[in-house]
Nucleic acid binder design. Structure first.
Lengths: 249, 249
DNA sequence: CGGTCAATTGATGTAGTTCAAGGTTAGTGG
DNA sequence: CCACTAACCTTGAACTACATCAATTGACCG
């Protein structure tokens, strides 16, 4: 367990975990739907008529830029919600990475529930706010991290998530392909591959299945934390990072 | 609460004319506060005890990364709200770029108002959702745009904002310095400067004040749109971008 | 007039992209 | 069973956009 002790959990996650119980209850009576790999759940720009709870599997959330490039803005996994954005239209497309089951709730149902149940409201807000925090973290990653830091951050976040969900070892199955990771981290597939190779070479990672190369074990979580460039970013909830002299005008 | 009654009065006597009227009304009775240039309004990680309406001036919103680098996640200007994030703590620091006046409302007051007035809720949501949409756009910019596209996008957004607020010409005063722009666009001050020079050289921009170089005129807005790589992103509300063949696995 | 500060410009370096090739596995059809 | 193809990933070599380092300019200011 203290393997993971290098990896801190924020209380925003802790509380979110409890909070979600209520939101999950909203979906509990809905029937499940199965989404085959590569199938789309909704498209960017569609009227956001439903919100979804992921029961099992994984989705990529992405935008297509005018020149055809794809930017993945996030991944969602079992237990997550998607489409909660308060906007009238979906801000991104959502596509199954692997076989995925979801429950669906109409936006009106959600809105009614949030309107009627004052205890649900802060819970709903906290989910939205987590989404915002994630978007901001991603902006930081894209704005100033190097390729290695990006991949390490990504793997670290995935590891944290798995651990929070009760995983007791650091072996994990990445459902997405290298191209997905590249489009998420704002780099090319080649660079992603090279960084993987580098981390494996240093004994930080190990690839478990030679065939798909999707299952990896993190041998040195501490090194991952180091390389992710987030060493001390969260060690104190009240901490405010200081400016370095000379970085200000 | 006369806060609430003022809003309900509005509800009865105005149709759903313009969204923001309601939120602005919440702040209307609050006294204004002046923030000198470079002064901080709140810090990342602080308990988000208040929300603010910008009456005049401009703020930069930023995070400091562990190695001291600064990432500006957004700018807010007169008429905007800041700190509305539903999180318990501010996700970023906010600092005045120039002399700035704000009105302040306690988070509790805002929450009460949102709880009590069902008409306010969707308005509040739409502001939050706009913030989310902006964050996503920024992720796209940082993930895949080139230096020139980034600067053009930035200038274009600024121009759009000015135009929406009734500006009738394309001359605009950028309150922030080059370093701010650089930290916002994920590039260096030198690159920002070079891109400015490039755009000026092509007759797309003109700098009005030789001294501070903060006042510019956009001579060819169309060229700016082209170079921003968003040619068709906003011309049709219902449009959904198509995938290019071969960009998918 | 020297000092400072923001912005620009130039010269050099490099991280990551691009282009191209090769390896591994799974699927398909003879 | 083997040949053939198609995905996906990896690796190498060359290129380039941007960063970095360094110097210059121009405006302001005590």
């Amino acid at each position: 367990m203290h393997l993971i002790s290098a990896i801190e959990f924020k209380d925003r996650h802790m509380t979110a975990k409890q909070d979600r119980v209520c939101l999950h209850d909203l979906f509990h009576r809905q029937s499940t739907e199965y989404l085959a790999p590569e199938k789309s759940l909704f498209l960017e720009g569609d009227v956001s008529s439903h919100v979804f709870e992921i029961i099992d599997g994984a989705l990529r959330l992405f935008k297509i830029v005018s020149d055809g490039r794809r930017v993945i803005t996030g991944f969602v996994y079992a237990g997550d919600f998607v489409g909660l954005s308060l906007a009238r239209r979906y801000l991104y497309s959502a596509e199954a990475i692997c076989g995925t089951t979801v429950r669906r709730l109409s936006r009106n149902q959600l809105e009614d529930a949030v309107n009627e149940c004052r205890y649900l409201r802060p819970i709903f807000f906290s989910v939205v706010s987590d989404e915002m925090a994630a978007a901001q973290d991603q902006m930081v990653l894209l704005a100033c991290k190097k390729a290695e830091e990006r991949l390490c951050s990504f793997l670290l976040n995935f590891l944290k998530r798995n651990t929070m969900r009760g995983a007791r070892h650091t072996c994990m199955d990445l459902p997405m392909c290298r191209q997905d990771i590249a489009d998420y981290l704002g780099m090319t597939i080649e660079t992603v591959s090279r960084m993987f190779t580098k981390l494996i070479g240093r004994g930080i990672l190990k690839i478990e299945d030679a065939t798909t190369r999707h299952t990896i074990t993190v041998l040195k979580p501490g090194a991952l934390v180091q390389l992710a460039g987030e060493e001390d970013a969260y060690d104190d909830d009240r901490r405010v990072p200081q400016l370095k002299a000379g970085t200000r005008h």
